[in-house]
Design a protein around this nucleic acid. Sequence first.
RNA 1: CGCGAGGUAGAGCAGCGGUAGCUCGUCGGGCUCAUAACCCGAAGGUCAGAGGUUCGAACCCUCUCCUCGCAACCA
Length: 732
Amino acid sequence: MDIKNISTENKEKTIGRYLITAALPYANGLKHIGHLAGAYLPADIYVRYLKAQKRDVVFVCGSDEHGTAIPIQAMKEGTTAQAIIDKYHPIIEQNFKDLGIAFDFYHRTSAELHHETSQEFFTMLNDNGDLEVKESEQYYDEATSTFLADRYIKGTCPVCANDNAFGDQCEKCGSTLSPDMLINPVSTLSGNSPIKKATKHWYLPLDRHEDFLREWILKEHKDDWRTSVVGQCKSWIDGGLQARAVTRDLDWGIKVPLKDEGGKVLYVWFDAPIGYISATKQWALNNDKDWKPYWYAPDTKLVHFVGKDNIVFHCIIFPVMLKLHGNILPTNVPANEFMNLEGDKMSTSRGWSIEMDDYINDWIKKEPIDGKEIGGESMADVLRYYLTQIAPETKDSEFTWKGFQDANNSELVNIFGNFVNRTFVLMHKLCKSKVPPFHNDIIDNTDKQLIIDIKQGTDKITSLLEGYKFRDALFEVIDLARKGNKYMQDKEPWMVAKRETVDGVLSVDGQKSIDNSLHLCLQLTANLAILIHPFLPFTAGKLCKMLKVVEKMLEWQNVGRIDLLKVGYSLREPQLLFRKIENEEIEAQLTKLKDKALAVNTQKESKKVEDIKVEETKALEPVAAEIVFDDFAKIDLRVGTIVEAEKVPKADKLLKLSVDLGFETRTIVSGIALHFAPEDIIGKQVTVVVNLAPRKMRGIESNGMILMAEDTAGKLHFINPEGGVNNGAGVK
RNA sequence: CGCGAGGUAGAGCAGCGGUAGCUCGUCGGGCUCAUAACCCGAAGGUCAGAGGUUCGAACCCUCUCCUCGCAACCA
């Protein structure tokens, strides 16, 4: 299929239907408000807008429940992987509901239908010869009869000598590793040393599709995708695309649908995005619809909402899969950057985050005080408001509780809520609680200007929403309320009432002037209800009730009209849309955040101490399996002297050393910068492994490894001969 | 030279070739229908730095400095 034809077709044809997806949340824990702001909220706003436009839209999402992290977490918690996902899937689903994220269907990847869909996908690609099969040697645990995925192997880090490095990375020094690089690898399942065994794996050869990706992303979408998205993709493509393993040796996941491949599952990155397809299928089944046009028809507009860490999956890998499978490609991937929190990166594991669940409990489900309602759905809208207002659409942004309070108090309460409230109060006082008529004979420039502002404002908001600029669109909605306040100030109906009342009777002209100003303010309120609806759905619902109109009024075709409310219609008593947030509430949240982070970190510290203790007792016993002398003799150890030392730029932990080994001077990169200042170690004698395969770190080739001893305090010490010997002396 | 994004009033951000703009905050005034709300006005910036292109640069080009991300979990 020629991709070029499809997309030009797309531009010319009208859009038949939309399929909107939001990144699948990983079901290993609670999700925080950064996740919400990054993907789910913008997706929901867009979907609500499209639905108001009466377009054919399906919005799908679901829990991502495979991958190694879940069984590992289960192991830590002494439970099963199934129990973990069964715990988090319903919580996450409910959290989204409470915050007004209205998926048409929220699926889960452990569902039977998803397994079938993913297997069919794999089979088709495999049958068409679109996958490559490679055999390689991998670590295998004989005790449990399983191949060990990266995170199931621990060992000594070749860079910093940390004993608890994982097969993919050392958490201590941050080096990226592969299982082969670990010294003394140990299976985390049994504690045994694993053996090497040949295993077969399927790969998706991305390199075959480089030309297609360059054409599709870097040329066709150069201008209509966000610059950061195109930039990331370019960086990936220029970095050289490589074949990516599609299968893994693991027992948690979707079985590879081939005979004789019992212990293999599909790699989680492969099955997760297919979750969008299976969710669409399940939605269709439940609603008696046909799912196929959403994934095959060229007039379908597919939009993926994700965070920036997901760009490559949704712009490079998944599109390649879709293309090979004969599906349509995404029209856009409006990825957001990250949202920081009170000056630091958000992180659940470090306790520096606000979980959606926390917010719901602390604000939405807050009990009334003295019979006064202070929680409720409108608090969900407050969060939606602030997160949209600071959405990291073009660069990282920052959530602060002070900012949250300011946005609520000065914009939602003082500008938007207050405009609606004063309009209602005045209407009840001066217009007998009815929508007053509009007298065309006394229309003035102020009235005309407001009508123009409503029309222009709504057009602007519509085009901003079409262009995924939700932050700007929301600003324009508030700005319209601001214009309403100004209009009211200019017309000052309360003054007219005073001025034109003689002997307790209001003049006819006075009443006509008041009628006009409140008529327009009420029509503007109705427009605001429609415009705010995608952003603040609960508030829009409340407004409908106050205006005594059905929700059908919220359809986008009504926007910009100034005849939405019928003259003479009697309206309800006003109800406050938002409440002020007090300083004490904000301080309480700040304290809570700091306490949580502190608690998590102390827990971690004590765990570290425990780990060290375990190591100490371990050290008394043989650490590794017995080796014969020949094995030891393979390691060539020499004494050398550090002659030069400098910090490696842009690396916190690395020092670049020149070591005189007598027969030559070598460059060695060592992860010791946190322990030693470069100038202090020049001239020191050290022991070096000289026949270790060279390895590049930060672009510098390291030819050897300095031996270090680590004490219980975690401090590093050089291992050097007493008294000093000649450089190049062998160590036996 | 690893790559990408960014550095603009006290804070948070927009503008991306033609008199520096918005929101919050601060100060002064007006108004009182409204959730001590609303409206008007003012102060506050050599647009990170240095070169260059141009009649003209925050904006385009080059270099330098700084921040964040790609790079545990994680949108």
